[in-house]
Amino acid sequence: MTTNSHDDSLRNLLGLNESKISDTTALALGGLGVGLIGLQWLQNQEKDNSLNRIFGITSTGKILKRSRANVAASTAQYNADLDKISSGVEGGMKAMEAREKDAIDTSARARGLDAKISQASQEQYGASLSGAYATAHKALAEARASATSQLGGAMANYNMGLAEQQFKDLMQTRAERAGILGEIGGIAGSLIKNAAERESMPQPSMGEGDLAKTRIEQNIPELQAPTGIEALDTTVRVVPPLKAFTDQGLNPLQVNIPYRR
C-alpha cells in the first residue's frame, strides 16, 4: 500500500499520468470551429460583400453600375448634340428660304414688277424647295444612321466587355472562395490530424516491476511510510517535483526511468 501510493506520487511528480484527451479534443473542435466560422463568413460575404464594405473596396457591381450611368449620360448628350445639328440644318434651310423670299420681293419691286408677280414668284420658289429640303433630310438621315451605327458598334463592344468583366469577376470570386475554403479545410484537417496523432501516441506508463527494478538499478532505498510525529502531521505539504530526487542525493537529470511502448 505504501509502495503503491508512493509510486503514484512519483508518477504524478513526473507528469506521466496526465491525460491528453482533453487537449486533442479541444484542438479538433478548434479546427472544426475555424472551418465553420470560415464558411459562415463566406456566406455573409456573398450576401453583403462585407470584405468590400470593411476595407472600403468598390464592388464590381457598383463599378459596372457607375460605368453604365456614365455611358448613358454620355450617349444622351451625344444624341442631344445630333438633334441640335439636325435642327441647325433645318433652321438654316428655313432662314435661307425666308431670305430668298425677301430677296424676290425686293428684286421684283426694284424692277417695277407687279406685287402679284412677286407673290407668285415667291410661291413658285417655295414649292421648288421641296427637292432641297429632301436632299438635306436625306443627307442628315444617312449621317445620323451611320453615326448611330458606329456608336451601336461601340456600345455592343462595351456591353460585351462588361459581360466579360462580370464573368471574370465571378470566376475570380469562386477561385478566391475555393482558395479560402481550401485554406480553412487544410487548417481544420491538420488540427484534426494532429489531435488524432496525439490520441494514438502510446502514453508512457510505468509498472510496479519497472519502478522496483529502477529502484534497485539506481540504488534508491525504498520509501517508508512516515512514523512518529510526522504521521500525525495532516497538513498538506507541497513538495517540488525534483525534491524527491535531491532529497535522496540523486541528480534528477541522470535518473533513467524506462517505460513500455
Binding site: G92, M93, Y133, A136, H137, L140, A143, S146
Partner: peptide, 14 residues
C-alpha cells in the same frame, strides 16, 4: 446650300 449644309452636319455627326 442644302447639300453643303447637310454634308457639313453629317461630317460633324460622324
Amino acid at each position: 446650300y442644302a447639300t453643303g449644309k447637310s454634308s457639313l452636319a453629317g461630317q460633324k455627326m460622324s
